[in-house]
Design a protein around this nucleic acid. Structure first.
Lengths: 205, 205
DNA sequence: CGCGATTCTGAGAGTTACTGTCATTTCAGT
DNA sequence: ACTGAAATGACAGTAACTCTCAGAATCGCG
């Protein structure tokens, strides 16, 4: 008697193969992050990580294209776009984005505060990671600008729109940086609001 | 009869050793950039560059700590600070920075337009270079913020000041990017003014 | 000019992140 | 159980660096 698809989706859901893959992936990532904390990022070799996770170096690279990717699996950026498209059309871009950021950051912190703080610290401390992170953020910025262009019916390359996106991301990065530097003790949402208000006021100095 | 220090400072100024070093450095850099243009950045190995410049790979690394540095020797960023400190104290930071950027970009373009365009294109096209460039720009941003803090008598870590610096740099990067994408045909100063005005107006959308 | 001290250079060996190939093992569906 | 597909590990190779060391070029001084 074979199990029905329904039962299986409840009990195991994924085949043994898939479960093993997920487990291996998590194992590699956890050992990597642990070793980075213990010995530093550069001082930790892929070989060590592979050994700790009990896989061969070849397998490591099948799961993570680069050593950096063990830190930089960024699940949040795609969510921003989704949330942005979900915002009511009558809101101005500024308001919509403020909502989106508030929502996501709220959830994010509630779920993972300490892990986010640790990872952010690592990313800010290691040049290679910082660089990759910025690259990723830039892509998100571009996609936000595209989404806004669509929303406003402006051309995709619109200069003001791009400047807006860049300035917004800059404020967000400043906020995150300030928060991390202060050990995660500030109220990051208040800080962000402050930054956005300041930006909307034309950055008076 | 020995030459006086004065004469030497006009005629050779530097010893043979120093002159050779400068020559070697320039040679390596020129061959590197040429090869990058011809075959692409990643496809060009340090060994090839060294061979073209008629030095050993060891020597290459004595002159440039990394392959990236052959492209990224950035002589402009330090000038910004100097120019900023030279601005009259009664100008607002915004005005002062606008002046500084206008001055420097004007000079820069007058001297080297095509080379700047080529190098910028390369830097924007190659991820590794983009990343390093951003890192460098960030450092400049930090120093600008420090200089402004001093100028205004605010604490160095002032959040608004940092947000200002970040937004300003973001607008500048957007400007440069738009200019390069359009083949350097726009009036970059007009574009920059537009961006700065837009920022000062609070990025209305 | 000559000579010792300093600096520059090239050769070579080693490390590490990554890529590609291929045989072996492990799982999935029948 | 059996077969095709996917995952794995061993291995070889590349390229960017790093370190060391011996020899050559340059400099400063008498």
């Amino acid at each position: 008697m074979s199990t029905s698809p329904l039962e299986r989706s409840l009990e195991q859901r994924l085949g043994l193969r898939e479960r093993k893959k997920l487990k291996t992936r998590r194992s590699i990532q956890e050992h990597a992050l642990r070793l980075f904390q213990e010995q530093g990022y550069e001082a930790t070799t892929v070989e060590q990580i592979a050994e700790a996770a009990e896989v061969s170096p070849s397998t490591f690279f099948r799961y993570f294209p680069t050593k950096e990717d063990t830190v930089l699996t960024d699940e949040y950026d795609p969510l921003i776009l989704e949330a942005l498209r979900g915002q009511p059309a009558e809101l101005s871009p500024t308001e919509a984005l403020r909502n989106v950021l508030r929502e996501l950051i709220g959830e994010m912190l509630a779920a993972d505060r300490q892990r986010i703080l640790d990872r952010s610290r690592l990313m800010l401390a290691v040049p290679a990671l910082r660089a990759r992170q910025w690259e990723q953020t830039r892509e998100t910025q571009d996609r936000i600008v595209e989404a806004l262009a669509e929303r406003l019916g402006r051309p995709a390359g619109d200069f003001e729109l791009r400047a807006f996106g860049a300035a917004l991301i800059a404020v967000w990065e400043t906020t995150l940086l300030a928060w991390v530097e202060n050990g995660g003790e500030d109220d990051i949402l208040a800080l962000l609001d402050h930054g956005l208000d300041y930006l909307a006021a034309g950055c008076p100095l």
